[in-house]
Design a protein around this nucleic acid. Structure first.
Length: 294
DNA sequence: AGTAATCCCTGGCAGC
DNA sequence: TGCTGCCAGGGATTAC
């Protein structure tokens, strides 16, 4: 499940290989995943274009071409990999963290590969998304920065960490929704998903079901101070892989080994030994320690 | 207007 | 073995 650190890891990988490459041809097999604000469909619009840069805001990857900008949301299971067919059999495999099965780091396009962009030098950018929750949205480049998908986002915690506390103080006071639900709301702060919201609340000793407007200023300050370094640490670990996340080379990250609570329901809290509990908030599972978080 | 519930979508897995 | 049903969840949509 790609959240900010996973998307940033992918961005860094793609930023090394895409700029300057020319797109020869693109094929998008599922139209529902593609939204075009251009005169043509995405596949036709990008053909002949050259990559300029790869940016990121929150969980949204922004690929700037010459005249077109692509906003890519990876959803739950989106994988965006740069593939060089010449390196197909490089002998590199990754081990599935749950099943222990080996998987090729660079698999050839399969039934879950919905978008394939072929470059003039034979390399490819492949988008694979098992659950199809991802979206590709295309804009004329000049209009991309004012796109609705970007305008509706709250601040990115890594783009402006020094403003995070003041922003959260203001935003959390306005709502009685559970703090966990609010942290997942991309219009409040963008980039956090279920994993990092749970980790941040544990790290700050805050119960996920607390109404956001019940948090004391000191607790909000603690969240604002905790979130950016937590995300940076995960980026240093190349992201968290539970099942589907892969970086732009097709390799899993290792931050799952650093998680304190996410996915550990029923196990002992690392801090106090209490059995971790789970609850559902906003339709999402939250794992928390009833002793450390109040 | 603010909040909560529902839906999309598939693979993995438990239970029978 | 093979089937059924449930679970995972980001974000849009619908309902309250």
């Amino acid at each position: 499940m790609p959240e900010l650190p996973e998307v940033e890891t992918i961005r860094r990988g793609l930023a090394e290989v895409l700029p300057g490459r020319r797109i020869a041809k693109a094929v998008a097999s599922i139209q529902k995943m593609c939204v075009s604000h251009l005169d043509t469909c995405i596949a036709d619009a990008v053909a002949g274009e050259t990559y300029d840069q790869v940016r990121r805001i929150g969980k949204i990857l922004i690929i700037d071409l010459e005249k077109v900008t692509l906003l890519v949301r990876l959803g739950m299971t989106g994988q965006l990999t740069f593939r060089d067919p010449k390196l197909q059999d490089d002998g590199q495999f990754s081990v599935h963290p749950v099943t222990g099965l080996q998987r090729a780091a660079q698999h050839a396009p399969d039934k879950h590969t919905h978008i394939v962009i072929e470059h003039s030098d034979g390399t490819m950018l492949c988008y694979r998304d098992i659950r199809r929750f991802g979206r590709w949205i295309a804009y004329p480049r000049a209009e991309a920065d004012s796109a609705e998908e970007l305008r509706s986002l709250g601040p990115d915690p890594l783009a402006c960490p020094q403003e995070l506390e003041a922003h959260l103080l203001k935003a959390l006071a306005k709502t009685s929704r559970a703090i966990k639900t609010v942290l997942l709301d991309q219009s409040v702060v963008c980039g956090l998903g279920n994993i990092y919201a749970d980790e941040a609340l544990f790290g700050c000793g805050i119960c996920p079901s607390r109404p956001a407007n019940s948090l004391a200023p000191a607790e909000i300050a603690s969240l604002a101070a905790f979130i950016p370094p937590m995300l940076l640490q995960s980026i240093a670990n190349r992201g968290t892989t539970f099942s589907d996340y892969r970086d732009s080379s097709g390799h899993p990250g290792s931050n799952q080994n650093s998680l304190q609570v996410y996915g550990r329901y029923g196990s002992a809290c690392y801090k106090c030994g209490t059995v971790l509990e789970k609850c559902t908030l906003g339709g999402r599972t939250s794992t928390w320690c009833p002793r450390c978080q109040s």
